[in-house]
Amino acid sequence: MSQTFTAAEVAKHKDEKEGFYVIIDGNVYDVTNFLDEHPGGAKILKRVAGRDASKQFWKYHGGNVLEKYGGKLKVGTVAETAKL
C-alpha cells in the first residue's frame, strides 16, 4: 500500500530501529531489506537514508534499475510542500 510522507517523516527512517528509507524523484523507497543485496554495499544506502538521494542515484544508475527494483521497494511518495 502506497502512503504519502512528508520529508520530515522520511528523515526519521535512517537507522536500524526505524528502517532505511530514501527518496528518489519524489518517490519513497524502503531499502531496509535491500541493504545486503545492494551491489555498492549497505554503507552507501545508510549514508543517504532519510533524505533525497535522487542526485546520487542517477549519477550511478540508469532507469532500468528502478524498473527492476522500484516496484518491490516503493512505499509511497513525498507530499508536495509549499514553495515561497
Rank of each mutant, 00 (worst) to 15 (best):
A11R: 13
Y60V: 12
W58I: 04
Y69E: 12
A8I: 05
V28L: 05
L45H: 06
A42S: 13
I24S: 06
K55F: 02
V22A: 02
V28R: 10
I24N: 06
P39E: 08
S2V: 06
Y69P: 02
S2N: 13
G76L: 00
V28G: 12
G26I: 14
L84M: 08
V75H: 07
H38V: 06
K12N: 02
V78W: 13
D52S: 01
D36Q: 13
K74P: 03
I44A: 12
F20T: 01
A11C: 07
L73Y: 12
E37W: 06
A42V: 01
A7G: 03
E9K: 05
K83M: 10
Y60W: 05
T77S: 15
E67A: 14
Q3W: 11
F34T: 14
K55L: 09
E80N: 13
V75Y: 09
E37L: 13
A49W: 03
E18Y: 10
F34D: 11
H61K: 12
V75P: 02
M1D: 13
M1F: 09
G41Q: 02
E18I: 00
E16N: 10
T77R: 04
N33S: 12
G26T: 11
Y60D: 05
F34H: 07
G71H: 05
R51A: 13
K46F: 03
I44Q: 06
K83H: 09
I24Q: 09
G63E: 12
F34Q: 04
Y29M: 01
E18H: 15
K14S: 13
Y29I: 12
T81F: 04
K43E: 13
V10E: 06
N64S: 14
N33Y: 05
A53D: 04
V31G: 11
Q56P: 00
G41N: 03
L73R: 11
T6I: 06
H38C: 02
T6L: 09
D25F: 03
G62P: 07
G41Y: 04
E9N: 09
F20K: 06
A8Y: 11
A53C: 05
K17R: 15
G70I: 02
E16I: 04
K14A: 13
S54P: 04
G70R: 01
F5D: 11
A53K: 03
I23E: 09
A82F: 12
Q56E: 12
Q3K: 15
Y69I: 13
E80Q: 14
S2K: 15
